[in-house]
Design a protein around this nucleic acid. Structure first.
Length: 861
RNA sequence: GCCCAGAUGGCGGAAUCGGUAGACGCAAGGGACUUAAAAUCCCUCGGUUUACACCGUGCCGGUUCAAGUCCGGCUCUGGGCACCA
C-alpha cells in the first residue's frame, strides 16, 4: 500500500468503480423498503458555490447512510433552469439564454461528478426542456377548466424608462437597476391560482409533519396566517339602507371587534374605490394617490414606509352608535388584503395610534387592563385584551373574549356584520412578463374568449432563438409565436419559476414518461423521505410544492397528502470580508484568497495584508458568501488542491447542518490532515491485517477498556447519524482514530475491528478514501455493500463506575465505586473521599441528591 | 414594520431528559526530528492566582439541591417577506 495519501488517484478510481457498477442507479423493487433522498436542485448559474457543496454533501451522506442500512435508495439531480439570471447574462453578453443555460449545466454537472455525489444521472431533469414543462402546462389547463386558475388585476414594479416590468430584486432603493428611474406601481391583468382554497388544508397538514423543523412549520403557519374576525359594514350616509349594495357601505375586516366602540376613523387603501372617487373632485387626494403609486411593491418596502394619509372629507356611520366616522386614505392599508379598508382604534392599536397622533384624530379608550393596572393611552396604545369600558349598556364590563362574541352577534342581528375566517395567504400570482420561462398555455380568441390550449397541442414550445435586450419580453415581438391562424392571440407571459420547482420531485420518479405527467413509479417512490435544502426556502418554495402535491393528488396523479416526510434545512455559508476604502468613501471588497491575516501570540487576529502588494486591508463583518462582498470561496479550487473527500469532510465537520458555516482555510487544512492520519494508520497495519487472525478473543483488562471506549464512541456516532448531527459524527470518528493510534502489535484484533468501524462510519462522508482502504485492508470489494456497524453491548459493560461529587452543586471531587454499589456505600464513599471531606468540616449534611451512575450532590449548611 | 432563528475560549463548535462547561478540530506558544524547509510526533492552551480557591456560556431578573439548558424581560446579529432562486 502506498505510504502517502494521493486523493486524486483514489477518487478517480472510486468514481470509475461506481460508474462501472452503476452503483447509484435506482430501480423500483416492491420487495425492498425504498428511501427517496432529495436535495434542492440548483439554478444553473455557472459554477457550484459553497452553498451547493454543503447542501449536496448533506444529501449524499444521508443517501449513502440509508443505502448501507439496506434501503433501496433514489437520489436524483437536475436543473431549475428557467429564470432571470439567464436573461441578465443575455443582456450583458449577448448570449441566448438557452445556450448560456445548457453550457452552465454541463460545467456544473462535471463539478458534481468530481465531488463524488451518488446520483442516478439517468433521471436527470432540466426544467427548460419541453419534455418537462409540457406537463405543467397540461396541469395548468386542467386548473383553468376547474376554475382554479383565473385572471385579475395586480400590481407590478414598472420601470418607465426601460418600459419593462421589474422583479423586486431589480428595484434598488426605489429605482430600476439598469435605468435608475424611479419605479412605479402598475396594475395589469395576470394569472392567479387559487392556493387560498387550500389554505385550511395547508395549515392543518403542518401538524402531520413531525419531522419538519418546528421553525419552518411556524413560518408557514404565520405565512398562511389564519385569523378569526368580523367583517363590519359602515353605511355611507345618503344611500338607501333597504337596498344594500357594495356602493352604500364601506366594509372593513377586523380581528378586534371588541374595540369597535373605540373607532374614531376608518382608513382605506389608495386604490380603494372610495379614494379614487374622492380624487375626482379633490386634487390633494389625487396627488396623494399618485404619490402612493411611486415605489416598489415588496412588502418590506411598503411596511417600512412612513405612515401617511389624507382625509377624504367624508364620513361613514358607526354600525352601532350611528355616529359619523371620518374616512382617510392611508399608505399602510393594502388593497390586496382583507377588504382594502380598516377600522381604526387609536387607543388600542399602535399603528392607528401613531396615525391619530400625526393627524390630530381623537383616541377613545374602550378597554382597561383586566387586573386593574393603570394604562395611560396618551403614552401609547393599550393593545392587550382586557375589560370593556365606555362601550354602552350592552357591552360594558365584558372581557375582550366575551365582547368578541357579543359584538359580532349583535352586528349579525343588525345585518351590519358577519364573523369570518381570513387568511393572510394570497392567491398565487403566476404570470411573469419575461422571456426565459415556461409559456402559459392560454389563448385569447378574437371573440374575447380565453381558452386553454388543448392537450393534443401541448407543449407550447418556447422559441429559443431570440434576442433579449431588457426592454420587455421578446415574445411580445414574435408574431410567429403569439399570432395564431384563426386570429386569436397566444399568451406571451410565462410562469413564475416556482411553478417548475413545485413538482420536479415527483417527475424524477418517471422522467421518461411520455404519456402522462406521472406514472405508477411515482407511487413507489413518493413521498420524498428526506428533503435537504436552504432555510431561505422555508416559506415560498416549500409551501408551493405542498400545494402542487395536493393539486396533483386531486388529479389522481399521486397518493398521500404531503410531498416531503422529513426536512433538513441547512444554514448558509459565510466568510470574512476584507475591504479598502477609497478617498470617496467607496469600499473595494477583496477576496479572502488574496489576503493573509496576522495574529498575536495568543492567536487573535490583529491585521490583514493583501498578498499582492503587501499592504494592509480592513477587516469587515462575517457575511453570507456573495458576489457583492467578494467573499466567495470557489469550491473547485479546493477540490483541485485537496480532493473531494477533504471538502466534504470539512463542510460537515465545521458546523452542525442547520447552522451557518463560517469558512476557514485552516479548517480545510485540518480536515485534510485527518484524512492523512487515517491513511497513515491504515498503511502502517495493512500487511499485518492481511495475516490470518491469531490473536485470542480473550482481551486483557487494558484491551477491554480500550474496546469499551471504542464502542462508546461508536454509539455516539450512530446516535448522531440518526439525529443528523454530522459534525459530531466526524468528531467521534476522529476520537476513534486517535484511540487506534494508541494500539500496538498485540492488539491486532482490536485494530481490525476498530478500522472496520471507522471506515464504515466515514463511508457516507468521505466515500473515496474509505472505498479504497476497505479494499486495501482486505475487508471486502465494495464498502457500499458492507453492513452498517452496530454497538456490541457486552463491550460497554464495566464493573466500576465513576461518580462526580458536588457540595451545594459545586464540583469537589470524583469517586470510583463498584457498579452494583448500593446508595449507602456511594454516599459513604463520597463523604469520606479526600477532596470532599475537607469541605465538610463543621458543616451539616441536610440532604443528599444521588443521580444513579453519575453524580452525588451533598447539600450542606 | 411583520414572521423565524441565533449568541458558549483567540476561532469553528461539544455538552442526548435540568446533573463534571469547553469533547473534536483550528489558530497560537514551547519542544523533538531535520543541513534546512515541508511533513510528522510530544507538551501547554477560558480568566484571575505562587497556591488554595474564586469568576466564567450576550444583558437583567426568577425557579431549582443543581441552569449553557427551564420561565419573564431586554440587547445585538442573521434569514424570509409573495416578481432572486
Amino acid at each position: 500500500m502506498n505510504e502517502s495519501y494521493q486523493p486524486f488517484d483514489i477518487e478517480t478510481a472510486a468514481q470509475g468503480f461506481w460508474e462501472q457498477h452503476q452503483s447509484f442507479r435506482a430501480v423500483e423493487d416492491p420487495s425492498r423498503a425504498k428511501f427517496y433522498c432529495l436535495s434542492m436542485f440548483p439554478y444553473p448559474s455557472g459554477k457550484l458555490h459553497m452553498g451547493h457543496v454543503r447542501n449536496y454533501t448533506l444529501g449524499d451522506v444521508i443517501a449513502r447512510h440509508q443505502r448501507m442500512l439496506g434501503k433501496n435508495v433514489l437520489q436524483p439531480m437536475g436543473w431549475d433552469a428557467f429564470g432571470l439570471p439567464a436573461e441578465n447574462a443575455a443582456i450583458a453578453h449577448g448570449k441566448p439564454p438557452a445556450a448560456w443555460t445548457y453550457a452552465n449545466i454541463a460545467e456544473m454537472k462535471a463539478q458534481l461528478k468530481r465531488l463524488g455525489f451518488g446520483y442516478d444521472w439517468d433521471r436527470e431533469i432540466a426544467t427548460c426542456t419541453p419534455d418537462y414543462y409540457r406537463w405543467e402546462q397540461w396541469l395548468f389547463t386542467r386548473l383553468m377548466e376547474k376554475g382554479m386558475a383565473y385572471r385579475r388585476h395586480a400590481s407590478v414594479n414598472w420601470d418607465p424608462v426601460d418600459g419593462t416590468v421589474l422583479a423586486n430584486e431589480q428595484v434598488i432603493d426605489g429605482r430600476g437597476w439598469r435605468s435608475g428611474a424611479l419605479v412605479e406601481k402598475r396594475e395589469i391583468e395576470q394569472w392567479f391560482v387559487r392556493i387560498t382554497d387550500y389554505a385550511p388544508e395547508l395549515l392543518a397538514g403542518l401538524d402531520q409533519l413531525p419531522d419538519w423543523p418546528e421553525q419552518v412549520r411556524a413560518m408557514q403557519r404565520n405565512w398562511i396566517g389564519r385569523s378569526e374576525g368580523v367583517q363590519i359594514d359602515f353605511l355611507i350616509p345618503g344611500s338607501c339602507p333597504p337596498a344594500p349594495s357594495s356602493e352604500d357601505r364601506l366594509t372593513v375586516f377586523t380581528t378586534r371587534p371588541d374595540t369597535l366602540m373605540g373607532v374614531t376613523y376608518v382608513a382605506v387603501a389608495a386604490e380603494h374605490p372610495l379614494a379614487l372617487n374622492a380624487a375626482k373632485t379633490r386634487p390633494d387626494v389625487a396627488a396623494f394617490i399618485e404619490e402612493c403609486r411611486q415605489g416598489g411593491i415588496s412588502e418590506a418596502t411598503l411596511e417600512t414606509l412612513e405612515k401617511r394619509g389624507i382625509s377624504l372629507g367624508m364620513s361613514v356611520l358607526h354600525p352601532i352608535t350611528g355616529e359619523p366616522v371620518p374616512v382617510f386614505t392611508a399608505n399602510f392599508v393594502l388593497m390586496g388584503y382583507g377588504t382594502g379598508a380598516v377600522m381604526a382604534v387609536p387607543a388600542h392599536d399602535q399603528r392607528d395610534w401613531e396615525f391619530a397622533e400625526r393627524y390630530g384624530i381623537p383616541k377613545r379608550q374602550v378597554i382597561v387592563a383586566a387586573d386593574g393596572s393603570p394604562c395611560e393611552i396618551e403614552q401609547g396604545a393599550f393593545v392587550a385584551p382586557g375589560i370593556l369600558t365606555n362601550s354602552g349598556p350592552l357591552f360594558e364590563g365584558l372581557t375582550s373574549a366575551a365582547a368578541f362574541d357579543a359584538i359580532a352577534g349583535h352586528l349579525e342581528r343588525l345585518g351590519r356584520g358577519q364573523r369570518q375566517v381570513h387568511y393572510r395567504l394570497r392567491d398565487w400570482g403566476v404570470s411573469r412578463q419575461r422571456y426565459w420561462g415556461c409559456p402559459i398555455p392560454a389563448v385569447y380568441g378574437s371573440d374575447g374568449e380565453i381558452r386553454a390550449v388543448p392537450a393534443d397541442q401541448l407543449p407550447v414550445v418556447l422559441p429559443e432563438d431570440v434576442r433579449v435586450d431588457g426592454s420587455g419580453s421578446p415574445l411580445t415581438r414574435l408574431p410567429e409565436f403569439f399570432s395564431l391562424p384563426d386570429g386569436s392571440r397566444r399568451e406571451t407571459d410565462t410562469f413564475d419559476t416556482f411553478f417548475e420547482s413545485s413538482w420536479y420531485y415527483a417527475r424524477y420518479c418517471c422522467p421518461d414518461s411520455h404519456t402522462a405527467m406521472l406514472d405508477e413509479r411515482a407511487r413507489y417512490w413518493l413521498p420524498v423521505d428526506q428533503y435537504v435544502g436552504g432555510i431561505e426556502h422555508a416559506v415560498l418554495h416549500l409551501l408551493y410544492a405542498r400545494f402542487f402535491h395536493k393539486l396533483m393528488r386531486d388529479e389522481g396523479l399521486v397518493t398521500g397528502d404531503e410531498p416531503f416526510t422529513r426536512l433538513l434545512t441547512q444554514g448558509m455559508v459565510v466568510a470574512e470580508t476584507y475591504y479598502r476604502e477609497g478617498s470617496d468613501g467607496k469600499k473595494t471588497w477583496i477576496n479572502p484568497a488574496e489576503v493573509r491575516v496576522e495574529r498575536d501570540e495568543r492567536g487573535r487576529v490583529t491585521a490583514a495584508v493583501h498578498l499582492g502588494d503587501g499592504l494592509s486591508v480592513a477587516l469587515g463583518a462575517v457575511e453570507k458568501m456573495s458576489k457583492s462582498k467578494n467573499n466567495g470561496v470557489d469550491p473547485q479550487r479546493l477540490v483541485d488542491r485537496y480532493g473531494a473527500d477533504t471538502v466534504r469532510l470539512y463542510t460537515l465537520f465545521t458546523a452542525p447542518p442547520d447552522k451557518s458555516l463560517e469558512w476557514s482555510d485552516e479548517g480545510v487544512e485540518g480536515a485534510h490532515r485527518f484524512l492523512r492520519r487515517l491513511w497513515t494508520l491504515a498503511a502502517r497495519w495493512a500487511d499485518a491485517l492481511h495475516l490470518p487472525l491469531s490473536v485470542s478473543t480473550d482481551l486483557n483488562a487494558n484491551q477491554r477498556s480500550l474496546r469499551r471506549e471504542m464502542h462508546h464512541g461508536l454509539r455516539q456516532a450512530l446516535f448522531d447519524y440518526e439525529r443528523q448531527q454530522f459534525n459530531t459524527v466526524v468528531s467521534a470518528a476522529m476520537t476513534l482514530v486517535n484511540l487506534l493510534y494508541r494500539l500496538e502489535p498485540g492488539d491486532l484484533a482490536l485494530l481490525r475491528e476498530g478500522l472496520s468501524l471507522v471506515l464504515r462510519l466515514l463511508a457516507p462522508i468521505t466515500p473515496h478514501i474509505t472505498h479504497h482502504l476497505w479494499r486495501a485492508l482486505g475487508f471486502g470489494e465494495d464498502i457500499l455493500q458492507a453492513p452498517w456497524p452496530r454497538v456490541d453491548p457486552t463491550a460497554l459493560h464495566s464493573d466500576q463506575v465513576t461518580y462526580v461529587v458536588q457540595i451545594n452543586g459545586k464540583l469537589r471531587g470524583h469517586i470510583t465505586v463498584a457498579a452494583n454499589a448500593d446508595r449507602e456505600t456511594i454516599e459513604q464513599t463520597a463523604r469520606t473521599s479526600e477532596n470532599v471531606s475537607r469541605f465538610l468540616i463543621r458543616l451539616t449534611i441536610r440532604k443528599v441528591i444521588l443521580v444513579p451512575g453519575k453524580l452525588v450532590n451533598l447539600v450542606v449548611q
